[in-house]
Design a protein around this nucleic acid. Structure first.
Length: 888
DNA sequence: GCGGACTGCTTACCT
DNA sequence: ACAGGTAAGCAGTCCGCG
C-alpha cells in the first residue's frame, strides 16, 4: 500500500512532542520507489565533463558522473567494460589454490598470471592478479577479505623463501578503475551508443603543439609528459551551475551547536542561492515568532512552510536540481543534519539525496563541495591565497577574500524573528556562494584544474590534501607504465633511512641553508633566486624513489654531495619526469602567459588558475617524500633534494664572490646582492644555466633594505615605495595593535626614503614615533578599553593537552573556560598582560587599571630593536633614559 | 632560598 | 598529515652560593 507523503512528515507540533524519543520507522513499500530518479545517461550524450567517479554497491559497478554543460545537468554512466576489482600477489596460482579460505571465498572471481615492472628491483616480475567480485572482497574493512587471507593463511600450509605479499589492495576501486581505463577526470567525454569516449579538442591541441615546441631540446620521454600535462591544462573550464546551501536549526540552549548525529531539533530556516541568480529563503512557521525586519535582496523568494518535512523536501528537490551544491562545513553539519533529521521524520533512505559517509556527506546524483575543507587545506591557504586568511571560519575567510562578513547576532538563533533569521541565514549562503564566484569563478576552476592534475574526482580533490593529489597522479602513471605500485614498507626497506643530521632536534635530516645577514642599511639590492629550486633539482638530478640508491653498482659513483646516497644513471625516475614537466610548464608557459596583456582576459584568467594550481603542487612536491603519511614516502629522496639545494646555493655564493659581488643574505634558494652591475647579473645567470642547469634570475630589486643580525628578518623597500617586511615581530599577527600601529607608521616613513640623505629626516621622525608610543603607554592613553593591547595567540591543541608547560595564552584560556566559555583547539585567545598573578587576563575580562605597562614598554622595545640598531638608533636613548637611570 | 644559566615548549614565521 | 630552519617569549629545572 502506498503511503501519502504527509504521513511521513508530521506537523511541527508532533515533532516537538516526539523530540525525546525519535520515531523509528521501518522502511515501507513506498520507500522502494525513489522519489528522485537517477539521471541515467542516455545512449548518446553530447560532450560532458567527467566530474566524479564512485562505486555503486547495489549495482556492483563503477559510476561516473558527467556534467553536461548545455543542459547544466549531471548524468550517471555505469561501467560496461566488465572491469573488476583486484589485488596482486607474489604467490603463483598453483600455490594460491592450496589456500582453502581463499578458494572458498564467495566473492573471489578468478586468478590471472601477469607481468609487471618492479621499480625497486628494476626488473620484470611475474605476479598473480587476484580478481574479486566486489571491492570489499579484496580489501574491505571487515576481517576476512582477500588481502588479509593470503598472508595469514599461506604460511600455515606452504612455504617459500620470499615473503608472501599483497599489493595494490588498498586503492579505492573507482580510483583503480580510473587508472586502468586511463580516464582523465575533469576532461570531456561523450557517450556514443552507450560507450564512454573521450572528446579531444582541436583548438587546445594546437596550443599543445606550440607548447611542445618550447621543449625541443628535451628527450622524447620527457616531451611526452609535457604534452600529457599541457593537454589536460589547456582545455578551459565550463560554467558550473551551482547552489549554495545554509541551514539554521532550532536550539533550546543558545551556546550549544546542535548535534547533527542526534538531529533533535527542527530545521527552521534554509537559504538556497543559485549561481543562476535564484535566491530562496525557506522558513518554518512556528508559534509566537514575529515577522520582524531583515534586509534581503528584492528578488529573494521567501517561502513559509507549515511542516518541517515539506521544508526539507524542498531543500532536497533543489539539491537534485542543481548539479553542484556548495556548503561551508556541510560535511559535518548542514548535510549531515538534514540526512539524520529527514530519517527521523520518517523519510526513507531512497528519497534522501544525501549519502552520509564516515567523514563526508556526498550527494547521490550530484556533487557536493564543502568549502570549509577546501579552504582549510594548508597548501591552498598559503600558496593559492597567500595567507590572506588565518583561521578558517566563514566569517574570516569571507572577510579576507570578499570583504563580506557574517551578521553579528545579539540574540540566539531561536529568538530571532522570521526576517532576522532569513537575513542571517541568507548572508551565510551568500558568502558561501561568492567564495566560489570571485575572480571569475577562481575557486571552481582551481578545483577543476586540481581534479585534472591529480586524476581524482572533484569530491575527493576538494577535500583531501596535497600529498593525496601527488600520490594519485603518480599511481596513475605507474599503471600506465605497467609498473607495480610498491608498499611504503617496500620502499623503506630497500632505500633505507636518512644519513644527515638535522639542525633542529627531532627532525629527520638536514634542510636548507640560511646565510648570515650583513647587518645595516644597504642601497640598491638585487635579489636573485632559483625558480622552483627543489622541483628543478628533482628534474635535473633525476630524483625519485626508484632512482635514489638504485640497484646498479655502476651508478654508485653518481654521488649526492654531503650524503652517502647515489642516483641512478640508467633509468629516469617517474617523479623526476612528472614533477619536472609540471615545473617547466609553470615557469616557461603558464606563469608568463598569466601576465601576458595581449591575451584575452578570459584566457589569461584561466592561465592564472593553472599557474597557481601548479604552484600548490610544486611547492609540496619535495616535502611529500619526507612525510611519513605519504604513500611513496622515501626520506633519502627528500634528503638528497635538500642536500643538492644546499650545494646549489653554496656554489652560487662562491661564484658570486668570485665575481666581486657582496652577498648580503640568502635563504634556501635566494641570494641578496649588494649593487651588482647588469653585467655581473648576466654572467652569474649564464654561469648557473651552464654549470648547474638551473635558472637563476632577478626576482626583486630593493631601493634599499635593512638587515639586523637575525636570519629570516629583514625589510626591503621596492622601487615604487612598497615595502616587504619579513619575519619582523612588528608584522606578526599576534602582537597588540597598539604596537603594530607604531611599526606601521615607521614602515610608511621608511617607504618615503629615496637616498642616504633622506635618512636623517626619516630617523628623526621615527624617533618621534617611538617616543610618542612610549609616552602614551606611560600615561596609559590607549583608549577606553585595553583591547588594543591584546595579544592574539592560537590555541594549538585542546586545553587538557598542555601538560608540560602552561603558556600565557593557555592561562588566559583557562580563565575563560572557568567563566563558561567553550574553548577548543584552534581558537584564537586574546589576552593582555596585567600586574597581578597570573600576569595575564583574557581581554574580555580586563580593564585599563590592571595593565602592566612595563611589560608593554619592554615588548615595544624588542619589537623596534630589530630595526633600530641597523639605523644607528637606540631605544633607550629615544625614550630619554640613560642606561644608568634604568638601573635605579 | 634565590637568581642566573640553561633547556624545552610553544607559536609565528621564512623558503 | 608536504619539509626543515629561525626567532622570541616564557615555563620549568639545575646549580652554585660558605
Amino acid at each position: 500500500m502506498k503511503r501519502r507523503l504527509d504521513e511521513f512528515f508530521p506537523a511541527p507540533e508532533t515533532v516537538e512532542k516526539r523530540e525525546e524519543l525519535p520515531p523509528l520507522q521501518k522502511s515501507s513499500s513506498g520507500e522502494n520507489k525513489p522519489r528522485f530518479p537517477k539521471l541515467l545517461a542516455p545512449k548518446n550524450l553530447p560532450t560532458s565533463h567527467f566530474v566524479s567517479a564512485t562505486y555503486d554497491g547495489h549495482k556492483g559497478l563503477v559510476c561516473i558522473k558527467l556534467y553536461e554543460p548545455k543542459s547544466e545537468r549531471i548524468f550517471l554512466w555505469y561501467d560496461i567494460t566488465g572491469h573488476m576489482p583486484y589485488c596482486l600477489t607474489n604467490l603463483p596460482i598453483s600455490e594460491l589454490k592450496k589456500i582453502d579460505r581463499l578458494i572458498s571465498h564467495p566473492r573471489l572471481d578468478h586468478f590471472e598470471t601477469i607481468q609487471k615492472y618492479n621499480p625497486l628491483q628494476d626488473r620484470q616480475v611475474t605476479l598473480t592478479k587476484v580478481v574479486g567480485k566486489d571491492p570489499l572482497a579484496i580489501g574491505g574493512r571487515a576481517r576476512g577479505c582477500i588481502r588479509d587471507i593470503i598472508p595469514e593463511e599461506y604460511p600455515k600450509i606452504g612455504h617459500t623463501e620470499k615473503k608472501v605479499k599483497v599489493w595494490e589492495a588498498a586503492i579505492k576501486y573507482y580510483q583503480c578503475y580510473i587508472y586502468d581505463e586511463q580516464l582523465d577526470p575533469g576532461m570531456t567525454y561523450k557517450i556514443e551508443d552507450g560507450k564512454l569516449i573521450e572528446v579531444k579538442h582541436e583548438s587546445s591541441e594546437r596550443v599543445v603543439r606550440e607548447i611542445c615546441g618550447l621543449f625541443q631540446e628535451e628527450p622524447e620521454e620527457y616531451l611526452q609528459n609535457v604534452e600529457m600535462w599541457a593537454r589536460l591544462l589547456e582545455y578551459p573550464a565550463p560554467r558550473f551551475r551551482r547552489v549554495a546551501l545554509d541551514i539554521e536549526v532550532f536550539s533550546p540552549i543558545p551556546t550549544r551547536v546542535p548535534d547533527p548525529q542526534e538531529a533533535a531539533h527542527p530545521v527552521i530556516c534554509a537559504s538556497l542561492l543559485g549561481s543562476d541568480g535564484k535566491n530562496r529563503v525557506l522558513l518554518l512557521r512556528r508559534r509566537g515568532v514575529k515577522e520582524g525586519i531583515g534586509k534581503l535582496p528584492s528578488e529573494t523568494n521567501i517561502e513559509y512552510y507549515d511542516s518541517e518535512g515539506k521544508l526539507i523536501l524542498e531543500i532536497f528537490k533543489a539539491l537534485q536540481d542543481y548539479p553542484f551544491t556548495i556548503t561551508f562545513n556541510g560535511d559535518d553539519f548542514d548535510l549531515k543534519y538534514l540526512w539524520h533529521r529527514a530519517r527521523k521524520l520518517g523519510l526513507g533512505i531512497r528519497q534522501n539525496p544525501v549519502e552520509v559517509r564516515r567523514r563526508v556527506c556526498l550527494l547521490k546524483n550530484s556533487i557536493h563541495i564543502d568549502l570549509y575543507k577546501f579552504f582549510y587545506n594548508r597548501s591552498i591557504q598559503i600558496y593559492a591565497f597567500n595567507q590572506k586568511y588565518r583561521d578558517v571560519t566563514l566569517d574570516t575567510v569571507g572577510r579576507a577574500i570578499l570583504g563580506l562578513e557574517k551578521i553579528e547576532l545579539e540574540k540566539s538563533i531561536s529568538e530571532l524573528s522570521y526576517m532576522e533569521l532569513a537575513e542571517y541565514c541568507f548572508k551565510d549562503a551568500e558568502i558561501t556562494l561568492k567564495l566560489t564566484m570571485f575572480d571569475d569563478d577562481l575557486v571552481m576552476k582551481l578545483i577543476l584544474a586540481l581534479t585534472r592534475i591529480s586524476r581524482m574526482p572533484i569530491e575527493d580533490v576538494s577535500r583531501q590534501g596535497v600529498s593525496r593529489w601527488i600520490r594519485n597522479f603518480l599511481y596513475y602513471e605507474h599503471r600506465r607504465r605497467n609498473t607495480l605500485i610498491p608498499d611504503k614498507e617496500d620502499i623503506l626497506a630497500v632505500k633505507g633511512a636518512t644519513a644527515t643530521k638535522a639542525i633542529i632536534k627531532g627532525k629527520k635530516y638536514k634542510g636548507a641553508t640560511v646565510v648570515e645577514p650583513v647587518p645595516g642599511v644597504h642601497f640598491n639590492v638585487k635579489v636573485m633566486d632559483f625558480a622552483s629550486l627543489y622541483p628543478s633539482i628533482i628534474k635535473v638530478h633525476n630524483l625519485g624513489y626508484p632512482s635514489i640508491r638504485c640497484t646498479h653498482t655502476e651508478c654508485r659513483d653518481n654521488n649526492v654531495p654531503d650524503t652517502p646516497h647515489w642516483i641512478c644513471k640508467k633509468r629516469r625516475a617517474l617523479e623526476s619526469l612528472l614533477i619536472g614537466a609540471l615545473r617547466d610548464l609553470r615557469v616557461r608557459w603558464y606563469k608568463p602567459k598569466s601576465k601576458d596583456e595581449t591575451l584575452p582576459n578570459e584566457l589569461r584568467s584561466w592561465y592564472n588558475v593553472i599557474q597557481s594550481a601548479l604552484k600548490v603542487i610544486l611547492n609540496a612536491s619535495y616535502g611529500v617524500f619526507g612525510a611519513e603519511a605519504f604513500d611513496l614516502y622515501c626520506p633519502p629522496v627528500a634528503e638528497a633534494t635538500a642536500s643538492l639545494g644546499r650545494h646549489v646555493i653554496s656554489q652560487t655564493i662562491s661564484k658570486t664572490r668570485e665575481l666581486g659581488i657582496e652577498v648580503l643574505y640568502g635563504d634556501t634558494d635566494s641570494i641578496f646582492l649588494k649593487a651588482p652591475s647588469e653585467d655581473q647579473i648576466r654572467t652569474l645567470a649564464g654561469w648557473s644555466e651552464k654549470e648547474l642547469e638551473m635558472e637563476l634570475e632577478v626576482d626583486k630589486i630593493y631601493r634599499y633594505s635593512i638587515f639586523s643580525s637575525r636570519k629570516k628578518n629583514y625589510l626591503g623597500v621596492l622601487p615604487d615605495g612598497d615595502i616587504d617586511v619579513k619575519g619582523l615581530t612588528g608584522k606578526k599577527r599576534h602582537i597588540p595593535v597598539f604596537i603594530k600601529g607604531a611599526f606601521d607608521q615607521m614602515e610608511e616613513r621608511l617607504g618615503e626614503v629615496k637616498s642616504l640623505t633622506d635618512f636623517d629626516e626619516a630617523k628623526r621622525e621615527i624617533r618621534g614615533i617611538v617616543r610618542d608610543r612610549y609616552l602614551r603607554l606611560k600615561q596609559r592613553e590607549w583608549g577606553e578599553h585595553p583591547d588594543k593591547l591584546a595579544f592574539h595567540v592560537v590555541l594549538g591543541k585542546a586545553l587538557s593537552h598542555y601538560v608540560k608547560t602552561t603558556p600565557q595564552h593557555v592561562k588566559a584560556a583557562l580563565v575563560l573556560q572557568k567563566e563558561g566559555y567553550e574553548i577548543k583547539a584552534g581558537d584564537l585567545i586574546s589576552f593582555v598582560k596585567v600586574e597581578k598573578e597570573p600576569y595575564v587576563k583574557p581581554v574580555q575580562l580586563a580593564s585599563n587599571s590592571e595593565i602592566d605597562v612595563e611589560k608593554y614598554v619592554a615588548y615595544l622595545q624588542s619589537t623596534f630593536d630589530q630595526v633600530l640598531d641597523a639605523l644607528g638608533l637606540n631605544f633607550s636613548e629615544i625614550i630619554g633614559l640613560t642606561k644608568l637611570e634604568r638601573f635605579m
